[in-house]
Design a protein around this nucleic acid. Sequence first.
DNA 1: AGAATAAAAATGAACGCTCGTTCATTTCAG
DNA 2: CTGAAATGAACGAGCGTTCATTTTTATTCT
Lengths: 202, 202
Amino acid sequence: MDDAQISKGERTRRAILEAAYELFLEHGFAATPMRQIAERAGLALGGIYNHFPNKEAIFSELILERHPYRQILPILLNTPADNPESFVRSAAQTMVDELGKRPDFIKLMLIEIVEFNGRNMPKVIERVMPEVLPLIQRFGQQKGLLRDIPPFIFFRAFIGLFFSYYMTELLIGDTPIIQTQGNALDHFVEIFLHGVIRRDEG
Amino acid sequence: MDDAQISKGERTRRAILEAAYELFLEHGFAATPMRQIAERAGLALGGIYNHFPNKEAIFSELILERHPYRQILPILLNTPADNPESFVRSAAQTMVDELGKRPDFIKLMLIEIVEFNGRNMPKVIERVMPEVLPLIQRFGQQKGLLRDIPPFIFFRAFIGLFFSYYMTELLIGDTPIIQTQGNALDHFVEIFLHGVIRRDEG
DNA sequence: AGAATAAAAATGAACGCTCGTTCATTTCAG
DNA sequence: CTGAAATGAACGAGCGTTCATTTTTATTCT
């Protein structure tokens, strides 16, 4: 049993984080009362303060360990990168499979922008950069097959594709607008691929 | 004078909206006190309630009249559309010129996602759709020059490009990461264009 | 193994403060 | 002169945090 190895304190600490995570995604940071976090985590209000000095510390820890980048990067790193086209396709597919069921996985980042003005981002970046750099290098090595795009831009555009997709999904997801919505992400991926892969022209 | 035509009541009503707009962008909805809105608008706390029934009504009105789409669409509609490439380029340029100075213009939308779970979006869409449809039709008419992409997807991908750009800008804007950041948006536009325009291939 | 014990964790009442909203009253504009 | 607009004190509720106390957990000693 994994639980046996984990101390009681650590277990409620995680329960607090999980409860806060769910509630922050539902109502944002400021609109989530500590009492509600305590209730969902299954302990009394005061108990939280044995594990966190204050409310903001809970969010800071959450965004460090659950920022979208922290969920996306392992997927990208585990995707075989023999050629850029198949890499992009299968990475996109994996991301849709793993993250698509919870389009609100980017909400933590939106909260960070809206309610903290990106104050926590330096720490997030510091933590995430060591994982990003080898990834960017991989992109850089495929120069022959790609149009002249700086690897970092390539990376950012690819990620941005999902951000913008899931953001509009959160906005207009359950609003019936136009029928051709179904596989918008597939189209996005195709646009990105055609935009990024070198074609022998004239 | 334009002011002369506007009644006193209407003038303070607008002052309230403007004050609330600025403060919401700075701290989000829940973290902005009515007292602060009143102070910045230059009237006493109670006075707000002569113009709005409650705090949420202020936000609802703001998002109806200042949602990013409402700022973006006029730009797109006024951009000549003789061919898709020049259209995309000059539309992008205009958007950067008009909106780029205030990357937080998308924050209102992020607040809507984070703190209202998109509750106001049906009304926004209802208001915005009549402007969107003719735009989409324009994209549809350029079929010969574009790859086979449903016009609505084309539109969404183009807008999404700016959303994701300005979102990352808000997140990592003043964090020094990598030097090649300077003209990321130009690269985004190029990727989009290559991804979208039909090239005669073998 | 089981009792003793010190540290960690949990409790819930209490505190001080700030919030959104109301309201009786006064001021001002048309 | 009348209705709209502005005032600021007041209200009740809810907030984050603290704290004295009790309970539980983990460790040490017999």
